[in-house]
């Protein structure tokens, strides 16, 4: 499920966060260069699969959506990256 290009990009971006950090939806959107609607759809699919944690909270009085990879999502991403690497022909850098 993370192999779809767009979702792979989302997961790859979230993997750049430090453990214990969560990023706001608009900032993630900014980094990915996606429309809000587009990102929303992908995040929902990733959340359904248990790969991202989405927290709706408040920053002062402003509602804020915070996102991060779940442990399961991290593992899935790592396993996926390892699997893809294994598919590379031996001569590739």
């Amino acid at each position: 499920m993370i192999h779809a290009q767009a979702r792979l990009r989302v997961v790859a971006s979230l993997s750049a966060l430090d453990e214990g950090d969560r990023i706001t939806f608009p900032r993630l959107q900014e980094i990915l260069g996606m429309t809000a609607g587009n990102l929303s759809v992908h995040l929902r699919k990733l959340e359904t699969a248990g790969y991202v944690d989405i927290t709706k909270t408040f920053s002062g009085r402003t509602p804020t959506t915070l996102v991060r990879l779940s442990r399961r999502g991290q593992l899935a991403f790592e396993e996926y990256t390892v699997a893809v690497r294994a598919l590379l022909p031996p001569m590739s850098t």
């Binding site: 192999h3 779809a4 290009q5 767009a6 792979l8 990009r9 790859a12 990256t81 893809v84 690497r85």
Partner: peptide, 17 residues
């Protein structure tokens, strides 16, 4: 295109990185 996997492992890794 968003729903498709990248074309091949090298492309995939490039995308990730």
């Amino acid at each position: 295109l968003d729903e498709h996997p990248p074309a091949g492992p090298a492309e995939t890794l490039r995308l990730i990185e």
